[in-house]
Amino acid sequence: MALTSPPQTRSPFSVWQALVQRPELLTLTLVLLLALVIGLINPVFFTPQSLFDLLRASTVTGIFALGVLLVLAAGGIDVSFTAIAAFCLYTTTLLVLNVAPDAPFALPLLISIGFGLLLGLLNGLIVHRFRAPSLIVTIGTQYMIRGFLLAFIGTKHIMNIPEGMDRFGRWSLFQFTTAEGARASLPVAFLLLVAVALLTWWILSRTLLGRAIYAVGGSVPIAERLGIPVRSVYLFVFGYAGLLAGLGGLVHASLNQLANPFDLVGTELDVIAAVVLGGARVTGGTGTVIGTLLGVVLVVMINNSLILIGVPSTWQKVVIGAIILLASGVFSRRKLA
């Protein structure tokens, strides 16, 4: 996990070996290279303000990505988390507005997390009970959850979100005014990402459950023969991804001061790409928290900062696609070797 320690280079060849064992080093290299290129072309990138923007933009994507990481590590995939997030953020906002509009942030937080957990458990239950590929199941639940939200709950944007969410969204950790008079701030919500990252790291690296998740991702028959309760692992990873979707959705609405039921769905492949660029394999059994966070920074940087260096917006998608291909190319070389 020690991100800060440089790779141990014993011979010229072991750089490649280090990459094989620690794919997140490649992600780190890509992040640093991209930051250097962007910063050299446009020094604005190196200001604290743009750093804060980057961290702010990474908060919600990062929370989602850590949930996806657990599912990928257990050998599954989840594309329904954006629909779960949209469902949780909108339903929670409506519910709180109608029942207890003055409640503190903890109430909507608990409701949203609860909804997310239930929907995630539903995914896990179907995947395990019917031995169905999780891609297919979560495509189905994505349609169901989003369709239910838009057909039965509502389609109107809610601008006046509840007091507690509003205050949480505006609450800053650091705040200062730059020489140009622009205000830069880092929202407290960023601490939630830090907390979730620490929790996820603890689960994956310090608990038996973490070992079980990697084992199931490596091979289900072997995991079963080792006596690992595969059913519980599935329920846990999908439940955790759903819970984090609920959390991320609510944070998203609070930060934007808006509950939009059409939000988020459609960005799931970006999040999955971030996790994969962080070194988790789609085939399961691998992936680290540090790598995932680096992958998130990489994707957010590509999405937000290319405009800073004058890549015309029409060419942005080509560049993003090329970077994803480049990075996955290196990771697949690792697999072939």
């Binding site: 297919i136 189905g140 349609y143 169901m144 369709g147 239910f148 838009l150 057909a151």
Partner: peptide, 10 residues
């Protein structure tokens, strides 16, 4: 319609 399609898949 989206809801029904998802339901049908499940």
């Amino acid at each position: 319609k989206d809801f029904t399609w998802g339901l049908l898949l499940i």
